[in-house]
Design a protein around this nucleic acid. Structure first.
Length: 116
DNA sequence: CAAGTGACGTAGA
DNA sequence: GTCTACGCCACTT
């Protein structure tokens, strides 16, 4: 498997920096990595997140556009909601209230650039 | 190299 | 508001 390097690793490295109580969208992550339309690839990366990395990568802070929790088989979505709620993230309907918890693309991208 | 796969996003109906 | 149909991308086979 080549998941230790390449796009996936970059996705993990970025997601790892999302602060508690905040969320980012798949599209934002892709855009920040220089692939404006790679949202789907980011989803693929999250799906392939190795178990041992799950502890270091706050995957639950990655949501779909509009704060939607991407449906998939298994308890994933449920766990994700629980973890977010544990971080005091507010939900509106079934979606994360992005106006409160969504990361601003600009500031996040800027901090990333500065830290690299 | 070609085809298949999905934790996406958007436009339409 | 919901549901469908495509396009997109990285990665696998």
């Amino acid at each position: 498997m080549s998941l230790d390097e390449g796009f996936f690793a970059r996705v993990y490295a970025l997601v790892r920096r999302v602060p508690r109580g905040r969320v980012v969208t798949y599209g934002q992550v892709a855009a920040m990595l220089g692939v404006p339309r790679g949202a789907r690839a980011v989803g693929w990366a999250m799906r392939a997140l190795p178990e041992e990395m799950a502890a270091r990568v706050p995957w639950h802070r990655v949501v779909g556009t509009g704060g939607r929790i991407s449906p998939r088989r298994g308890p994933g979505p449920e766990i994700q909601r629980r973890r977010l709620r544990a971080e005091k993230v507010a939900f509106r309907g079934g979606c994360v209230d992005m106006t409160r918890h969504g990361m601003l693309y600009e500031s996040f991208a800027r901090s990333e650039r500065a830290s690299v």
